[in-house]
Design a protein around this nucleic acid. Sequence first.
DNA 1: GACCGATATATCGAGCCGATATGTCGGACC
DNA 2: GGTCCGACATATCGGCTCGATATATCGGTC
Lengths: 207, 207
Amino acid sequence: MLELAILGVLKEQELHGYELKKRLTDALGAFSSVSFGSLYPALARLEAAGAVRAVSPGPQAPLPAPAVPMTGSIAGEAAAFRARRAAARPARPSRTRKVYAITERGEALFEELLVADSASADDDRAFNLKLAFCRYLPPERRLGLFEQRRALLVERLAKARTTHRTRLGRMDLYTQSLVDHGTEATERDISWLDRLIAFERQGGETL
Amino acid sequence: MLELAILGVLKEQELHGYELKKRLTDALGAFSSVSFGSLYPALARLEAAGAVRAVSPGPQAPLPAPAVPMTGSIAGEAAAFRARRAAARPARPSRTRKVYAITERGEALFEELLVADSASADDDRAFNLKLAFCRYLPPERRLGLFEQRRALLVERLAKARTTHRTRLGRMDLYTQSLVDHGTEATERDISWLDRLIAFERQGGETL
DNA sequence: GACCGATATATCGAGCCGATATGTCGGACC
DNA sequence: GGTCCGACATATCGGCTCGATATATCGGTC
């Protein structure tokens, strides 16, 4: 699942591991922080599979403008200040980094991972990830992805309703509230998907 | 994290692994299906730590009435029919099972796990799990749990808003929709927690 | 009486995570 | 000007969970 994320980011720009992690953790948002303990092995796997290759850290695209970081501590603020000053200087080469680029095999693997139905455990995170990269899919594949997801949610909802009906009395208030809240969230997810599907069908601009 | 779930279920009734798995997968709901590959090692760990012990499969509490299972296949339906018939007979001892019971050390561990702040990765699942067992907490601890969770969500929301503001233009429509939907979900989670907190403060019955 | 599926326990490989180790580099401070 | 600190950068380790698989028993079907 991490491979997909790595390939998706590398598709846009070649990067080294450390920067890649930063992109992943803020692009893929508050949920699912990527750790180095997963990232570097994943990169090694991808390199072994020929999906990415290490390139010489030659003349890169201009460094991204550093966004103001959220540190929440005095020391962190000072560090951020220094970081901004440092970033204002011309790009330092820093010869100890390994810059990775996606290969053709990597592009193929990316497409494959994007349509493969994911492991049932972290299904939710996997779908979010796919959605973040589904712009690379042809429209009919994208639609298929959405509908597949919708079917899964509908099934989950039906199961939840059955559970709710059969053992309503045997749940305490907190568990009941949890289940109800989860059911509502699933319903909202479904109607959100309905909006995405409608948008896709009309091929329009009003999401 | 799985330890907490096991202890919580064993707190109510002593069970063997297979039945324990069934309870976990339908009690902890559609999300997070527990696998044997986690369950049996976890049981072994707990036994090694003295938190649970294997008891003789002596005269048990009456077997739970089997709920009508959702199978979704013809063969499954037939199997369910046989299962119902089988369950109608008196409890079969089936001497190959190991029945586990919680110990005093297990109870202590349970309380400890219930208030410990969990790993950041699967924070959400951990909180859901804690909520399912928070009835065992004294009211002020429960309130603390809710407020801690609320603070985490508020922080997550603030971070999401910052991200949204700083790189709105650089996201495609799908990613934007994903982020927006996630933000809404977090807002709903917060107001849900507010209801739980209000319920807790008034100590009343209207959840 | 052979077969099948439910019951039941257990192990294996792989992936991911948090923690940690190691090293470089630039700037701050005295 | 030397030293220390923190950011940058790569990598490994142990532990947990997962899906898949192996193994065995038992009841019911054909």
